[in-house]
Write a protein that binds this DNA or RNA. Structure first.
Lengths: 198, 198, 198, 198
DNA sequence: GATGAATGAGAATTCATTCAT
DNA sequence: TATGAATGAATTCTCATTCAT
């Protein structure tokens, strides 16, 4: 290897690691795979990242940032006058129609964070950011978190159960959740919910 | 060791595998760890399960069945007259107050299924079963799936973000979702809920 | 490698490990060096010995046993009528004139045991055995241990300081130590020591 | 880091190396550990010490000097009128009751010197110095060397065999050894000691 | 049928040293 | 001169799987 001087090598390694995770999942990340993907000697990866965890965190941080930036771009482009439930339901449809790998990636972070304390802050930050972005569209923070939860849960179902996405149904549920009065029975006193609520 | 005649060895191996997954996660599963946990020679695990994947699937199937049975026990014990949102919110509180490892386990299955095609049916079955059980409490299948989604998403948030569980908020959102009259703003009195709630 | 069936492979690995330690010292022991010396695949060494420590202990145990057997042969051949100090001093001379590597080996065990708890029992056993064997020649166990200590200390000096062995001086000191009456000034009250003691 | 002008950096590195050896043994010494302990960039350690061996020797030299200085302080403080065997036996007791790590350190030098030619002079010097210091207390150089040997051997036994230190027994043996009249059975009053002792 | 042994690939790290800046 | 980066060899250990018995 005649490549002795190489600034941004660190970044190149991160990029390679992100690519590996994207293609083979977190489980596919190893010093070897990253070194190969970055076209860098094995020792170089351990030089820049003392442990594989450090590298994993760096890679996921980058993946996450990209994802969040994209969500933000979308959220900012939403017409404030349009019914947010419609917008969200349509956006989800696009997501599900798109690259499955992209979605998998996001959830891999969540699940990895379950067993891996070091990733917890990253996952938490991601969840919080999602909720923050959604506050433009929903009445309050609590609703935003609920919407995030619903989205995450629905995504799981789509990814795992190969069930087709039901845009209209999703829209309806979202609309309920986002109903702004903080009164779960939707604002006026009706009998239907009273039954439920008793 | 000298245990040559040993029916149920296969089952013992599965039990041991489930125990290993419970304690160390899916990543901790290997022929060696299982053999040690089952107090069985190494070759025995490969004899009864041609590949490690077979063993993993068997173990997860068992873990899953136990989990679903428990959920079912709970669902059947719910007072049909009580507001289902209250019941669900309280049940979730118990789950979150209990053993974190138990919950992690469930989500580990989802995680694995993301990248591991062979586990997909198991995960799908689990999600479907959850929805099926909830249909006792909610107006229709769509609402049940939405509730499952919300639960899964909330669980992720609790597990990952160390945020305390908000029972009242959750109850409110659940109540909204379950007000499944097809009118998302819940504004009129309809019979959909009444049926369920009776 | 077409050598699938190979009984005594375990023993061959131990032999190879002992040879490696003999030639390159404990620090030279690695899975690789042993595998090469035993002409065995790398994985084979880790199969038979879960950790390198296990292998090291097995090798040292063997080396030790050989050494102790040799000492025992000598001890049993000593003329009981001859002055033991003479015999010991002569034996030491032979040792020092012989293979330096052989002696180094013995002391490497001692020193390795200093930092390595797992080797402690082996080293202790070796010291104890030496003392036990010498009890044929010395008045009591305490004297035997003192003789062992003296021998060990002298050996260090010979090995480390390249100082020639002084057989007559050693004989004299040994004779003193072995003087049997348990009275350190040799039995009668004399002025010699008193002078010293001033 | 920003410490560009830094005289005594060399010495700081030595100090750090000595500290590393003290805490983790010779095997724990590496450029990295030293650099970290000295809070100095990695390259700095290789700049000041061409090879790791150079650094090791410097560290051991320092450790040794400290140890010998301490022994000397003790030796000079010994009451010349008191029986030297008593003093020595008591001093040993203090050593053994004290910090085990301190003793281990000293023997680690011996260990390393066995296989490492470059350390031989250091170890030899240490042994010689010990003997020299003891000549204040014992009749002659030969006796001093014998006492050093006995001490070293006993120390090994205490460190390795976890056997409690027997002060009285040790005192007795020391007294015998120091009764250096050349008459090994010490049985008659002769002038040998008187000469020495004057 | 059952199992201890075998094996080769791969895992994460650590490291002494060299070198471009 | 000083140093951060680079590197390739070596470290221990784990493992899924195969196979001879």
């Amino acid at each position: 290897m005649a490549r002795r001087y190489d600034p941004d090598r660190r970044q190149r390694i991160i990029d390679a690691a992100a690519a590996v995770v994207r293609e083979r999942g977190i489980a596919g990340l190893s010093h070897r795979t990253v070194a190969a993907a970055a076209d860098v000697p094995l020792g170089s990866t351990t030089y820049h990242f003392a442990t594989l965890d450090d590298l994993l965190i760096a890679a996921l941080r980058q993946i996450n940032a990209e994802w969040l930036a994209e969500v933000e771009r979308w959220a900012e482009g939403v017409d404030p006058a349009a019914p947010p439930a419609d917008e969200l339901a349509r956006w989800l449809e696009e997501q599900f129609a798109g690259d499955r790998a992209r979605l998998e990636l996001e959830y891999e972070l969540y699940f990895a964070a379950l067993r891996h304390e070091g990733l917890r802050p990253l996952a938490a930050e991601c969840l919080d950011e999602m909720a923050r972005m959604l506050t433009r569209l929903v009445p309050d923070a609590a609703a935003a978190r609920a919407v995030v939860a619903l989205i995450d849960g629905l995504t799981l179902q789509v990814l795992l159960a190969d069930r087709p996405y039901d845009r209209e149904g999703t829209r309806a549920v979202l609309a309920r959740i986002m109903a702004a009065d903080g009164n779960e029975d939707g604002g006026d006193v009706d009998g239907g919910l009273r039954v439920n609520a008793r």
